[in-house]
């Protein structure tokens, strides 16, 4: 039996209760499980960031319940415990680093937990090692590249020994290289530490590698499945303003033009399928 990490039960969230037509999340129910890499997709304003913030009690549901590791986020006494277990990384790398030196920033979380110095030092070392930023530990954050800053932010969450990472479009402001660095770091964490990853993104190429994809539209969950299952519904996706990954699009175009190719999700798969089709 898979362990449940996050559970949304009929969650509705409204930023302004006087204007219910502006409800950001409507009657949302789903569960996420330990060790899974889940991507949340959706066009602008579909409520992805709101869902992310509901995960660790930054926002509390207007109705319904959010449970993280069995704890109700609406109970104030649970807040600390939840935030320790569910770490969060945001979109803008400049606005989430607190300290003027990388290692001090990573130490910020453990300091807040009131841990003894030796413990903090050990955690900082380990967290920086996991994201491959050890050699930058004495650097100033504002001199790092976007990808490096985001890895420092991830290290900051790891230093709290977080078991689940929720990332809200962490790669949106990065160049392709930075994006790759961050994605590699995330997959490594999932592989080596079994960390549960919830990645909000609008890059389809990031979603294809996930274990599970949730698609949101207008505050509601409209698809849920493996990348292959979800991307099979290209018409429904384009109806809500999302495109299928490029390799899949190419494969389908080729098939329409008489080349026998199955659905593929990544460029490598496409190359392989193309090769198979002609040999």
């Amino acid at each position: 039996m898979k362990n449940e990490v996050l559970r949304f039960d009929n969650v509705t969230f409204c930023y302004d209760t006087e204007r219910p037509e502006h409800t950001a999340v409507r009657d949302l129910s789903f569960s996420l499980y330990e060790g899974e890499f889940t991507c949340i997709l959706g066009h602008n304003g579909s409520g992805k960031s709101t869902v992310a913030k509901l995960c660790n009690a930054l926002l509390l549901p207007t109705s319904g319940t959010v449970t993280a590791y069995g704890l109700d986020t609406a109970v104030e006494a649970n807040e600390n415990e939840i935030r320790r277990n569910v770490g969060m990384v945001f979109q803008n790398p400049d606005n989430q680093l607190v300290a003027t030196i990388v290692e001090d920033d990573v130490a910020f979380g453990p300091e807040n937990l009131g841990l003894p110095r030796e413990e903090i030092a050990a955690r900082v070392d380990e967290a920086l090692r996991l994201v491959g930023m050890t050699e930058f530990r004495k650097h100033e954050p504002h001199r790092l590249s976007g990808g490096q800053k985001q890895r420092v932010a991830i290290a900051g969450a790891l230093a709290m020994q977080t078991r689940c990472l929720v990332l809200d479009e962490p790669t949106a402001m990065l160049d392709p290289q930075g994006r790759q660095e961050v994605m590699e770091a995330l997959f490594k964490l999932k592989r080596e530490l079994g960390i549960t990853v919830v990645l909000v993104t609008h890059f389809m190429s990031e979603a294809v590698a996930a274990d599970r994809v949730l698609v949101m539209n207008d505050g509601k969950l409209c698809m849920d499945g493996t990348p292959r299952e979800v991307f099979a519904h290209s018409e429904e996706l384009s109806a809500i303003g999302l495109a299928v990954p490029k390799p899949l699009e190419i494969a389908r175009t080729l098939r329409q033009n008489g080349i026998p190719i199955d659905d593929v999700l990544t460029a490598d798969e496409l190359a392989q399928a193309f090769y198979n089709a002609f040999t």
């Binding site: 660790n56 930054l58 453990p110 807040n112 841990l115 110095r117 903090i120 900082v124």
Partner: peptide, 16 residues
């Protein structure tokens, strides 16, 4: 938001 996510309350902090 980022500070709240990292359990900042302003109290009971230790120093690295």
């Amino acid at each position: 938001d980022a500070m709240i996510c990292r359990c900042y309350t302003g109290e009971g902090r230790t120093s690295y």
